[in-house]
Nucleic acid binder design. Structure first.
Lengths: 192, 192
DNA sequence: CTTATTTATTAATCTAGGTTAATGCACAAG
DNA sequence: CTTGTGCATTAACCTAGATTAATAAATAAG
């Protein structure tokens, strides 16, 4: 699971020729902490697979505040699917929270892979659906759960992210201020 | 655009035989106002195309409160895509806000259509992506915009829905109480 | 037409979370 | 070692929106 091709091959076999062809279209890159891969307003064509490290996507609102949209640790793919699919300028920034090693494949990689292997369609549709499930739960959470409930849910769902990023970023993901998160955490540990 | 088949045919031609085959799998149904098509906890297999009327999907949270997830007026498809795709119990209820005429197709309809016409894959992927774009914007809105900004955005985006549903449902969609929405509206009209 | 039920509005009060600001800590950089 | 920059915590205060409740208006049901 150290490459995007490994992920594809979990779902169906690829012969050597196909593999080499596909591999040739994937660029591996080392990015420094803080390096920006994609900016709002750009037309995005890339998917980023995280071999090592941690990326995030986020928006900056009218008041200049960041809101983290997703974290992508090892083994995850991060992208602005909307911009990739319908060629509309990206809403999202993508950058590295840690020095990372990533694979970059542009959308033509997937298009070709789909043309060659009909199963790729099913796999990538499933990934889209999973992503949608996350967004769906997130909307419901934002509408119906308190900040503390959202934090607890985050801890359960992404226990390994919590230790790796500053708390203000978790606050940003949850849609609250760092001060509010600090208060919540204080209250929670005091109770135990 | 009065049938789900018309929607598909906007994107590519179908011959008569295919059309009749597909048509035979679509059930047309009249539903009364308030009729429930799908309950939380059920395994969903259906997509609903609205020929006439208005449907909605929503969740009920732990405190028994409804949160509307989407409205579907004429020409829209509404479904729990997540439950359909990965066969997990549905989070969502779907019911009719007006007496409606709908077409029900179960997911095998799409699976067959995809098998017969590779273009259906592209069309339905595009629909998924559009749905994702809506969710993406909604998450961003819920995290960064005030209730009033969200209401204004709703008015711009769905001007035709506003007159057709009780305001408490718009409040439910926005993630606020009916009282708060009433206050916002009062303030807005007074200013003009 | 009359009655019952849902809906919208308004007002009084309360609270989760925002804002501002000060303090202490952990580092990274010189 | 000193200085600076970013992060976490705490506290005082503020505000958007929730809650509760009462009333009026609109819809539905008998």
């Amino acid at each position: 699971m150290n490459s995007i091709l490994d992920q594809l091959m979990l779902n169906f076999p690829l012969d050597k020729i196909d593999m080499e062809l596909l591999q040739s279209k994937i660029k591996t890159k080392h990015v420094a902490k803080g390096e920006i891969l994609q900016m709002k307003g750009e037309l995005s064509n890339n998917f980023y697979f995280v071999k090592q490290g941690l990326l995030r996507s986020y928006v900056i609102d009218d008041n200049g505040k960041e809101h983290i949209f997703m974290f992508a640790p090892e083994g995850w793919i991060i992208a602005d699917n909307v911009s990739n699919a319908i060629q509309v300028p990206s809403e999202l920034f993508i950058d590295a929270l840690e020095a990372s090693e990533i694979e970059i494949c542009n959308k033509h990689f997937f298009e070709e892979a789909m043309a060659q292997h009909s199963q790729v369609v099913a796999v990538s549709t499933k990934k889209l659906i999973n992503r949608m499930a996350v967004l769906q739960r997130r909307v419901i959470m934002l509408m119906s759960a308190s900040a503390m409930q959202r934090y607890e849910h985050f801890l359960e769902t992404y226990p390994n992210i919590v230790q790796r990023v500053p708390q203000k970023m978790i606050a940003s993901y949850l849609g609250i201020t760092p001060e509010a998160l600090s208060k919540i955490r204080g209250g929670m540990t005091r109770k135990k």
